[in-house]
């Protein structure tokens, strides 16, 4: 393949990676930004979303698009409920201490993985995309659904941004983020806000998974990689900065797509990983954060 189409494909793949990253990271960013909680189980919420999407696709009859639409609604609700439960039963009682929540969410990670292994099994299973068309370019074919994922992730991000910036719920969340005690003094039920934010974070992870699972597969160990990547995106973007998260996802997705197209892939991964570390070393607040973490 000649250079031009090659680069085009790399860029398209990079856009898809960016979309996936941004989708997976936005929930984590929210939880991290508002609650200051490092949720190690975030990737497992993602996994649960994908796995439950598979169950929905088995139960709902009719064309794949119907099951897909059902999954888009049911899976985030289901996972959000689990997240809210985890918040109320465990995290709240830990007073959201950083180290304590890390350990608790590692515990949660194991519990969720085992639940998936026991009830869903060890196999990777495909979930059908709502529609199947291939964009046939002169040089190569490309999945139409992947392009739809890019568009959908833009919509989701826009929605989250509107929720935070323009709605009353968002105002309450931002107030709680800004100063928990003062928010409480103004009659905001901080406990409920936290449970809600954690549920929203989990639900967003599940929503991301439902969108992404047709181009990957549902598997009980699939949560690890999104977790690691989401973390990187959130930190590089800057704590709690939605804009930063999006730009970091674009930066990492595109550079990963392009670098590993032209160099030995494993070497490219090493270089990219070191670059992320060095960005943080010299700019600990991330690219768009206002203060150090």
């Amino acid at each position: 393949m000649s250079f031009g189409p090659f680069l085009l494909l790399a860029l398209m793949e990079g856009m898809v990676t960016s979309a996936v990253l941004a989708l997976a990271a936005v929930g984590l960013s929210l939880v991290f930004g508002i609650m200051r909680v490092v949720n190690v189980a975030h990737g497992e919420f993602f996994m649960l979303g994908a796995v439950s999407a598979w169950f929905v696709s088995q139960w709902v009859p009719g064309p794949p698009a119907v099951a897909f639409a059902a999954a888009l609604i049911l899976c985030p609700l289901f996972v959000g409920a689990i997240a809210a439960l985890a918040d109320m039963v465990v995290l709240k009682r830990l007073n959201y201490e950083p180290e304590a929540t890390i350990v608790a969410t590692i515990g949660l990670l194991y519990i969720l993985q085992q639940a998936a292994l026991s009830f869903y099994g060890p196999d990777a299973r495909p979930v059908p995309a709502p529609f199947n068309f291939r964009v046939q370019l002169p040089w190569f074919g490309y999945s139409g659904y992947k392009i739809a994922v890019v568009a959908a992730s833009a919509l989701v991000l826009l929605g989250v941004w509107r929720l935070l910036a323009k709605s009353r719920v968002g105002l309450i969340m931002r107030a709680t983020q800004y100063d928990r005690e003062t928010a409480r003094a103004f009659g905001i039920n901080v406990d409920r806000v936290y449970a809600g934010v954690f549920a929203l974070g989990g639900g967003l992870a599940a929503l991301a998974a439902v969108l992404i699972v047709p181009i990957q597969q549902a598997h009980y160990l699939m949560g690890t990689d999104p977790l690691l990547l989401s973390f990187i995106v959130v930190i590089i973007g800057g704590l709690g900065s939605l804009r930063g998260t999006v730009i970091a996802a674009l930066l990492i997705g595109l550079s990963d797509g392009v670098i590993s197209t032209f160099f030995a892939p494993t070497l490219a991964k090493i270089v990219a990983t070191l670059l992320v570390a060095l960005v943080l070393v010299f700019r600990p607040q991330g690219l768009f954060g206002r203060r150090a973490l």
């Binding site: 950083p98 930190i235 570390a277 060095l278 943080l280 070393v281 600990p284 150090a292």
Partner: peptide
Amino acid sequence: LLALRTQGVAFMIVTLMFAQAGYLT
């Protein structure tokens, strides 16, 4: 020498990244 320029969560991520680079190496 490098990672200790950061603190808290950034320190966690920087050390995680270095270790991941080592693993891939």
